[in-house]
Design a protein around this nucleic acid. Sequence first.
DNA 1: ACCATATATGCACATAAGCGCATATATGCA
DNA 2: TGCATATATGCGCTTATGTGCATATATGGT
Lengths: 126, 126
Amino acid sequence: MHYEKILKSLSDRTRLRILYVLLKAKKELCICEIMDTLALEHYNVSKHMKELKVTGLVKEQRSGKFVFYALADNKDSFVRNIVEAVAAIPETEFNEDTKRLNKRLTLRQNGKCVVGILKKSRKQKG
Amino acid sequence: MHYEKILKSLSDRTRLRILYVLLKAKKELCICEIMDTLALEHYNVSKHMKELKVTGLVKEQRSGKFVFYALADNKDSFVRNIVEAVAAIPETEFNEDTKRLNKRLTLRQNGKCVVGILKKSRKQKG
DNA sequence: ACCATATATGCACATAAGCGCATATATGCA
DNA sequence: TGCATATATGCGCTTATGTGCATATATGGT
């Protein structure tokens, strides 16, 4: 395995935020929820998710038009320690993300995201 | 603290090797020992040590002409988990380094490095 | 003071990485 | 089949990063 690649995949602040959010959410999140949580464009989130997928930190599952991402179950002790380290980061570090995540999750219906990408023009309408 | 910077400092294979070697050596190593262990040029080792120092993973202590490096004592749980992760990497991953380290350590006298940089011309002589 | 040696640093170069934009793919619905 | 929407990907650009070489600094011995 390429240990340094796993570390590299988390050496970017955006990806670290993504992993942290997935950790704290403790549930699958779709791209649109993650992009709203991080306040980033969907294509960047998408690219970062791919990296996290490649290194095996994250798993993906499609459900209709939506693609849900979650932490992968890792047996490797190296990866488990890394994930534990990220979990040990104080919440204040990603406070804004947490706020936005919680707000966004209230839009779920029956525990699933039904919102999609909130474009600026549509955000105005609600 | 900048968590992603700590991860980034270990996202390079050379620096990961350095940390691993310091972990397994369980003692201070000087630059010349590290460069022989990793089979790298001194100036690269030096630069990498600086990075590891900046992120607080490694501490430095000068003793005469020699500069010794060792793992820093970290209280932060994030860093401790990261270091634990690195320690959990199987020895086979850095087998060659371990071999070269052990060989190099036999050159110590009274537990201290007295060898310095073995230039090619001097290596011939022993 | 001078020299040898241990380590550090500045510079130029090649490569990698992240971003924004445009566009492509995939899915569901009419 | 055609369209809207969710997500992914390719491209060009800018910036960051690692390396090698040359050189600088630091220390001890003569």
